[in-house]
Design a protein around this nucleic acid. Structure first.
Length: 429
DNA sequence: CAGTGTTTAATTTGAC
DNA sequence: GTCAAATTAAACACTG
């Protein structure tokens, strides 16, 4: 039955009734770019560039980008700006790219229904137009990962994360409470995300969130909806990496036993709890919560362990430069690196560079030259054009050019990738 | 108090 | 069908 449509059924208000991926809409991607994953690029084609403002420090607008400091942003010149395209190649995946489902498309096709082999049964219809507010084919984990990676400092606060997502994906302008809760859950629950304490100088509420250095390419299979396997540190790593402390304590200690979690679960893998069934009987709700809460609280975050951990101010500070596309001098995230230094001394960087799906390096380094290309190819191939692009693509480059001012528009205006879609080919019309 | 973080639980969804 | 990943919901603690 209707399976396919379920999820947001409620909200579909916008969808005009059509089913999510269903027939009417699907993100069509133009993935073709050749890169392994760049599929994403198409998706977003340039969302906005606009500098969405607010990017405070780290978060670079999704699309932003571009190269020029001077103009850029904000203007949304064209909708689709030229930017985005870059390919993001996901490094890792390429290596393994599985059999391409659709011709050249390597791995993930963002197309709804297809990514990863096809989500459900829907078939892609070639002409599908992209819908504006369809749910993006990325899991929350993917979104978080992308957002962090595109940030110059490689770390974002929760709020920046939210902002990035909403700026980019209109879909998420709805039901915020729901997805934001999920985002928070994902951050806390997944070992691939680590919390980096804020500098004293920077007031503010939460801490920064970064990717665990070892998380590597979590989406090697090319599917952004579902990882083949969840990244689990042995146990306390998460914290360790970040700083030390943290969750490991409770969780690890107690349950941690298993590898990953085993906590309880015997099987090893169960990430979550495994309890559902078994313990269900025991008073499910009430009890659990109580306890949970308690401990959670107490673990709090880790004190700044090593000197390193925190982001150095300069990171956040306005970049005086605008980054040119070219110099990818890598991100400043060093600090972050540093933080993990103890964990992975050398590389960390490399890690991402090669493996991470949304590796910035890929984005930045290579494509730069070409980035100018106006949109990637419209290749309407089968799936038409407006597909998913990696939101990150342009972003990285952007670096915070806009700095804080703008913001406003983002939401209203759209800088979302959808724009691209729209504007793009619209072929079918 | 609102936002941020943790955690448990239930359910959905995708891969095998 | 099973298992695991992802999503959603919600309780609760901590912090600014």
């Amino acid at each position: 039955m209707l399976s396919a449509v379920k999820m947001e059924g409620h909200e579909h208000a916008d969808w005009s009734g059509s089913g999510y991926y269903g027939e009417t809409e699907c993100y069509t991607g133009n993935m073709n770019s050749g890169l392994s994953m760049n599929s994403m690029s198409g998706y977003m084609s340039a969302p906005g560039m606009t500098g969405t403002g607010h990017m405070n420090a780290h978060y670079v607008n999704p699309v932003g980008v571009n190269h020029h400091p001077a103009m850029p942003v904000g203007v949304s010149q064209s909708p689709g700006g030229p930017m985005a395209q870059a390919g993001v190649g996901m490094g890792g995946m390429s290596s393994m790219s599985p059999p391409p489902p659709y011709g050249s498309v390597p791995v993930m096709s963002p197309v709804y229904g297809q990514a990863c082999g096809g989500i459900r049964s829907r078939e892609p219809k070639p002409y599908r137009r992209s819908y504006t507010h369809a749910k993006p084919p990325y899991s929350y984990i993917s979104l978080i990962t992308m957002a962090i990676q595109q940030a110059g400092s490689k770390m974002l606060t929760l709020n920046e994360l939210y902002q990035w997502i909403t700026d980019l994906f209109p879909f998420y302008r709805q039901n915020q409470q729901r997805w934001q809760n999920s985002i928070r859950h994902s951050l806390s629950f997944n070992d691939c995300f680590i919390k980096v304490p804020r500098l004293p100088d920077k007031p503010g509420k939460g801490s920064f969130w970064a990717l665990h250095p070892d998380s590597g390419n979590m989406f090697e299979n090319g599917c952004y909806l579902r990882r083949q396997k969840r990244f689990k540190t042995g146990r306390g790593d998460k914290e360790a990496a970040g700083a030390a402390g943290g969750k490991a304590g409770s969780e690890g200690g107690s349950v941690g036993s298993g590898t990953g979690g085993g906590g309880g679960s015997s099987s090893g893998g169960s990430t979550r709890s495994d309890s559902p069934r078994s313990s269900a009987s025991d008073s499910p709700s009430s009890d659990a919560k109580g306890t949970g809460a308690e401990r959670g609280a107490h673990r709090g975050e880790l004190p700044p362990p090593s000197p390193v951990r925190v982001p150095s101010p300069h990171l956040f500070s306005p970049p005086h430069h605008h980054h040119h596309p070219h110099h990818h001098h890598h991100h400043p995230l060093l600090l972050h690196e540093a933080a993990h230094a103890h964990l992975k001394p050398d590389h960390y960087h490399p890690h991402y560079a090669f493996n991470h799906p949304f590796s910035i390096n890929n984005l930045m380094s290579e494509p730069q030259p070409h980035r100018l290309e106006p949109l990637p190819v419209p290749v309407p191939g089968q799936y038409g054009g407006g597909g998913y692009g990696c939101p990150v693509s342009g972003a990285l480059v952007a670096a915070k050019g806009g700095l804080e001012h703008a913001h406003a528009h983002a939401h209203t205006t759209d800088s979302s990738y959808y724009r691209g879609a729209y504007t793009r080919p619209l072929v079918n019309s």
